[in-house]
Each structure stands twice: as C-alpha cells, then as structure tokens.
Amino acid sequence: MNPVPSPARPATAHAARAVRRRTRVLRPAVAAAALALALTACDSGSSAAGGAGGTTAATRVVGTAHGKVTVPAHPLRIVSVHSWSTESLFDLGLTPVGVEDSGANYVPPRYLKGWKAAAKVSTGADLDYERIAALKPDLIVGVDVPYLSKAYRRLSAIAPTAFASFRESDSWTAYPDATASFVNRTAQLARLKKKYADRIAAVRAAEGAKLSGSRWDVIQGGFDSGNYWIYGPSSPVGDILARLGARFASATAAVDKGATKSVSYERADLLKDADHLVYYTNNDGSPANDIQKLFALRAFKELPAARNHRVVGTADFLPGSYNDAIGVVDAIEKALKDHTG
C-alpha cells in the first residue's frame, strides 16, 4: 500500500526515495547513539556536590610542579583531577566539588560515597573544562602526570592550579604531603602520619617475627594481555612492607626503583620463593586487571604461596592517602593472623 501523500512529505517520488534512503542510512547511527546513551546512563547517578559558596580573600604561595602558585589560604571549592589528590583530600577532611573518574571500582570503599557525590570532571586524559569552570573552583589540585601536565595551562586559566611533581621513583607519600600543603592542612596531615606510623609500629610489634621471617612478592594483572606485573620494593606496597620489616622474595627484589616488570604467564615460577603474594583488587574484593587468569593456571596454583592460601588482595594497592596505606597494613596483618604457624 502506498503512503498517503501529505503536505509535510516530499512532493516527488524521487525526493521521497531520497528521504527514505537517508532515513535508512541514519537509522543505524541513531540506534547506535541511543544504545550508547543507554549504556552510559547505566552507571551514572553522580551529582555535583556543592561545597560552601564563596572564597576567602587571604592567599598563600605554594611550591608546585609548575613553580610557585598563589592559592587561597582556605580553599572551599576544590576540584581534583587525579585520584591520589582526591583520596588525600578526603583523608584531610575536605570534600572536593569535582573529581576525576577513573572507574568507581578503583575508588577505595572508605571514599566511595564522597567520590560518588562529587561532580565528575575528567576521564583519564579527557578533561571537561566547561564543567570544571561551571563548578567555580577556587583551587584545582592534581598530580603532574604527563596527560595532566599538558592540561595545566588551560586549568590554571580557570582557577589556581597546584600539581604535585610526578616521578616514577617518588614515594607514594610525596602526593598526600603535597596535597596537604596545597590545601593548607598540614596539621591534619601530621595527625594522619602519626596514625600511620603508630599502626606500622603496632603491627611490627605484634607480627615482627612473621614479617621478617617471610618473603613477599607484589603483583597485579598486566594491562598487556598474557602478562602480569611484578612491583618492586620502592612501589607503594613494597614501601609499606619494608616499613613493616618484611623481606622481599626474589621477583620483587629484582625490580628496579620506580619500575614494574611485565612478565609472561609462563613465568609464574618467578614467584616460587615467595611465602606471600600481595595483589590488587577492585573495591568489591574481586581481582583487578584480569589477574584471575594467572590465578587459574596450574603453574600459579602450584606456587607455595598459592598452595598455602597466602595470596593477599588489597584495594589500596596504589595508595593515595595515609588511610589507604593503613588499609594495606590492615590487609597484611589480617593475612598474617589468618595463617598462624
């Protein structure tokens, strides 16, 4: 049956065909866009959390990766564009109005509620400058990793921007320390440092013999399929283990400062002299970054650490704050208590 002509429709058959053809071609694009929107909507639900409005007139000058920067003495509307800064801010008792989105599964549980409430202003290297500007921040903080370093000029045009210097070989403590300096919360930082030091001392006192008598390797799933990554003694977890007095097994001990080693699944045997293995989990406890593929292999299951169920997962594997680091200590202590003798 032919469609009934209507004034709104093209007058000629040729034009009608052209429209139909265009519609046919556009239909997949529209369907794809609708699907994309539906999929992206599945995980939304975040809303911008406004802090107290207004800024203070007093300022101070802080040292950053990009030189001296004048920042508010008491910033009230802070945007964080890096997860480490975000975690530090929460740790210091501040609630950022905007945060980066590296995936909710990577946000430590203790910060998840606050993180979800904040507006999301970036996904990795993609920064939403308009959204950041709309939040009217009085301070933007972050870490001077390469992709953010490139964004510094545009961000500093929106608000004073303070980035912590980034070097692969730096200790994890450099970032909370720098963030505390940017937001003028050094007293709170000192309290957190003491809390962390006390926790380390307590675990050393209780479990020192076990820690010094066992060897540890630190691993996570590799982003390069078929490989896993071995972290060194200077990695965040390595640093915490060293402070606890633990010894490193050969795989972790062999990794240079500031480096990680990508290793084929075939070389699970590199972990054979480890009594304990520490690995990265998502915040729901599931293995992060596909390391379960390594765990499924017999070559892994035959390792002493795996046979003795001494494979320790932690969502605080890459700590951005002192409470994250205490989370690592908690996981290690629990593993030691679970395996007495």
Partner: peptide
C-alpha cells in the same frame, strides 16, 4: 562514547 563515558568499561 561508551568507553569514554564509562571508565570501568574502558578498563
């Protein structure tokens, strides 16, 4: 679009 707006999916 999906991987940009959903970091967990990109991951």
């Amino acid at each position: 679009v999906v991987t940009l707006l959903r970091p967990d999916v990109f991951d």
